[in-house]
Design a protein around this nucleic acid. Structure first.
Lengths: 177, 177
DNA sequence: ATAATTGCAAAGCTTTTGCCGGACT
DNA sequence: AGTCCGGCAAAAGCTTTGCAATTAT
């Protein structure tokens, strides 16, 4: 592989150029003092560009599409590391695989369309207040919370209804937030 | 809705007596037309008596403590069946194992003590109203919901703080509702 | 009698880990 | 230079499944 000269252009489509264009997540990694390797930069970039909630396999797919110099074990190790550093949040929408959500997007919850697997993110101030008060009611300080709503669209346009949305493994593979 | 009250108690002659003392969950199974075997009756009984949210291994442990005529594969098959029939709800509190909650206990949510793993169940009318309105806001009918609060007890007496409460597999093994 | 259920063990999935060459500070 | 990281493949957990014998209706 060719080695890049540092201090070049922002590398809009090139590979992982060490000092150029640190993505949102990469910046967070650096802030936490993580050693930034090409793979981590790549994964950070995929995460920064993701607007949905990919699982590890999906992250891996997107990463190798950009560079193909990553193993899935590294993706696992990296998401785990980032989760421990508070950069990522792990979610479980019921598909048997964990899905990941950058924590810097602010707290939000999920409304999952059980027919299509589409995930809508939302926030609600009133709900925040409410859960705080519920926790307080039991003498707890809230450390984390998880609210997921599963619903069906009311009019149902001409979409393909999923045949089975309540199975154990390998549920929805894609979503767009 | 058949009523079918030919519940004349047959003489109990040992362990799983076919027609005697149908537990809450067993009754539900019968209503859905499930073939009731000794194993299913046993598991139904364990579930009926459970006040917490056991995982499969825990159900298995409790079942063989009562009768020891069950394999863990049957427990897996049964909870899956009951989930499909709407008798059980599968939960994931982050321990890598699914945990089960009889659906007939009514909707409730969970407040998990991240230090001890204790699970507190609660309901909140205001929350119910709120999530309905949130779903409606996006044009959805609510099919299911999940609210989990993770918190720390405020005063924290001289208890044993858990060493690590944010790992991926095999988290809390026990809880009391 | 018939069709479903169980047990056992093997297979399947996702995720983790040991080892060692290679990369980063 | 030293330490940490990445790749590979094997291992680990949890869950599912094929098949033959057993059991419920």
């Amino acid at each position: 592989m060719d080695h890049a000269t540092h201090t070049h252009t922002k590398a809009p489509h090139g590979k992982a150029t060490p000092g150029a264009d640190p993505t949102r997540i990469e910046r967070l990694c650096i802030e936490r003092g993580l050693k930034m390797t090409g793979q981590r930069r790549l994964i950070a970039r995929v995460l920064s560009e993701a607007e949905d909630h990919p699982d590890v396999e999906e992250l891996y797919r997107r990463a190798i599409a950009l560079d193909s110099k990553v193993s899935i074990a590294t993706v696992y190790r990296t998401v785990r590391l980032l989760e421990e550093k508070g950069i990522l949040e792990r979610r479980d929408f019921g598909g048997g695989r964990s899905r990941y959500d950058p924590a810097d997007r602010g707290h939000h919850h999920h409304l999952i369309d059980v027919d299509t697997g589409t995930v809508i993110e939302f926030e609600d101030e009133e709900h925040e207040r409410l859960v705080q008060s519920i926790a307080a009611r039991y003498g707890f300080t809230l450390v984390q919370q998880r609210l997921e709503l599963f619903g069906k669209k009311i009019p149902a346009p001409a979409a393909t209804p999923a045949p089975d949305a309540r199975r154990r493994p390998a549920g929805t593979k894609k979503d767009q937030g």
